[in-house]
Design a protein around this nucleic acid. Structure first.
Lengths: 337, 337
DNA sequence: CTAGAAAATTGGAGCGCTACAAAAACTGGC
DNA sequence: GCCAGTTTTTGTAGCGCTCCAATTTTCTAG
């Protein structure tokens, strides 16, 4: 059957059955458990299927079997680089169990998370991963296990939580800079829960060490421009600053821009640390020291937790933090002079 | 109904009907065409729905109505930055018509495109957008309209094609560099059809102008490392080169790295142009001149073409190139000396 | 060659919804 | 207060598949 052969109706198991000279039940059996069908018929059925261009109807399968072997993943913004790692982590655990992942985005800015969740639930997903700002009501009446990934605030009761230890990551960044001898350090914070945790972890460790810290950008966004503005504020008000920790790699890029604009060389005169270990940080040109939040591990953890709760719904939702990892590259150096 | 109230069975229109004291048909009608239902019953039904936490079963709806109001989008790699713009473009056209987009990735490297298409067709999508390397057989027996976006080779007969005019983009880049007075120009090519078109467009315009061109990296990949290697080759073999055009922004980043390693300042001693106008190029720090392939316009074009063919299946598939746009930023300058 | 067990195959009910024809409940005009 | 017309509501038959009990075929051993 070629593309050019228009068909009135998509073929069903009945068409396949007729064409193969067997009963529809047998066709269904071939689909589900081929080993229970004699080789002769199995091949006849398969031949008929490809002859007709048959593809099972997921709608019918779902309806009849009331299971979909799929989970839903809500992403806040497809541009967030960590979502791909999260997805891979999830798939690495789920695929061996025959589960598939259905994606939905919550339309950045529009906060369509309830719509996204509703859509996924309409598709009979057996579990839900929320990698977006959760809302208390989003799962009202939902009866499938859910796990929030990457957001620590507003997690609804009944939902699990697996995320990066942002406090720990902030502390790691602080530790690194302190170890390099920096004593006048700035932090470019941003808006949101993760940013707050990174900030508090960082600040805590810095103050412990008795080092001065200048924080900027707290209530603003997390874009490169926000990082640039925050870095400008720090560098203008505290020109003696020798190191900056940004709440994410994009903001760190803004910090690099601010440094360049002031003729400060990185890392000789100014050390910069980002967060996320995104492709940006990994790039040979930028070669940025960054905290890796191990989204792949978050993903596999989320998937395992979900799978366990799908299999045994009485299980209590888990709450777990994944340890981040500091990747030292070329934007940080021992303080000079 | 809270998360903590486990339910035996998900509620159906029958449950809603019973609880609202109406017939199931009426509930269905509220879902489809609320204006046809008296306000009193409509509200009763809606109250029952939220009381029970009812969500329609997409599987049942699909099966009964044999339409899904959805199209499938196959992406080669979620990391490709242009896919988000493509998606937004598609949604901007489709949403007003009540259509939704279902995503699938073809698992980069594994070339699971046939699996991705099969999965989407199983979900009864009414049309297909392939933003990945097409394969002749991927849609064997498919009976829905399909449009390929972004790949010009191997497009199956019967599928439409809307993509960026890569030759034109290459010519634009050449034009820009020639206009700036460059006469010894390198090109960092890469593997794949788009790269080939960009190369040929570029080379064509360059040769027309009687300018020398050095091309590297043709059969390699398109990563930053590939760009770096290609740039090293050009700069080492032709140290008099004053400008480089890279097949994409990531490779251009590699070129920047190569320039930095050789102490060449950009753009004073070396101009660099990328392609894609990705967030990378737009960033304040990199501020990279780049060709914008207008993925948003490709997306809206793809969606319009698909919609037209869904509505009138006899329509001939369209083939169209979208004009790119050169965005001049800080990595290109008039040749000095 | 045949009973009995095992393997292979089949029929039919039902999953949750829509579509459409038919029935019921309202309108307003006289 | 009654009829024709309109609006609102309902019953019923599928949509394409799975599941399971029932049936048929095949195999095994005496």
């Amino acid at each position: 059957m070629s593309l050019n052969t228009p068909r009135t109706r998509r073929p069903t198991i009945y068409d396949v059955a007729r064409s193969a000279g067997v009963s529809p039940s047998l066709v269904s059996l071939v689909l589900q458990n081929p080993s229970k069908v004699s080789e002769k018929r199995r091949e006849a059925v398969r031949a008929a299927m490809s002859e007709l261009g048959y593809r099972p109807s997921r709608a019918a399968t779902t309806l009849a079997s009331s299971q979909t072997k799929s989970i839903g993943l809500v992403i806040d913004d497809f541009r967030n680089p960590w979502f791909v790692d999260l997805l891979r982590g999830i798939e690495s655990v789920l695929s061996p169990h025959g589960y598939q992942v259905t994606l939905a985005d919550s339309r950045p800015g529009e906060n369509r998370i309830t719509e996204a969740v509703d859509g996924l639930l309409s598709m009979h997903v057996e579990g839900l991963v929320i990698a977006a700002e959760p809302s208390e009501s989003m799962m009202a009446g939902a009866w499938v296990p859910a796990v929030v990934a990457g957001w620590r605030n507003g997690v609804p009761a009944g939902a699990g939580l697996i995320t990066n230890d942002d406090d720990g990551g902030g502390r790691m960044a602080a530790e690194h800079l302190i170890g390099l001898g920096h004593t006048r350090i700035g932090h470019l914070s941003g808006f949101g829960g993760a940013a707050a945790h990174r900030r508090e972890g960082f600040r805590g460790r810095i103050l412990e060490a008795g080092v001065e810290v200048r924080i900027a950008g707290e209530s603003h966004g997390t874009s490169e421009e926000d990082g640039y503005a925050a870095a400008c504020w720090v560098l203008d008000h505290h020109p003696d600053t020798t190191a900056l920790f940004a709440a994410n790699d994009t903001m760190a890029l803004g910090a690099l821009a601010a440094a360049k604009a002031r003729g400060l060389s990185v890392p000789a005169e100014l050390s910069v640390i980002g967060y996320d270990n995104s492709p940006l940080a990994k790039s040979r040109y930028l070669d940025m020291t960054s905290v890796d939040n191990r989204s792949d591990i978050v993903g596999s953890g989320v998937a395992s937790a979900l799978l366990a709760r799908i299999q045994d719904p009485t299980l209590e939702p888990e709450r777990k933090l994944i340890e981040p990892d500091l990747i030292v590259r070329g934007t940080t150096a021992r303080v000079s002079g």
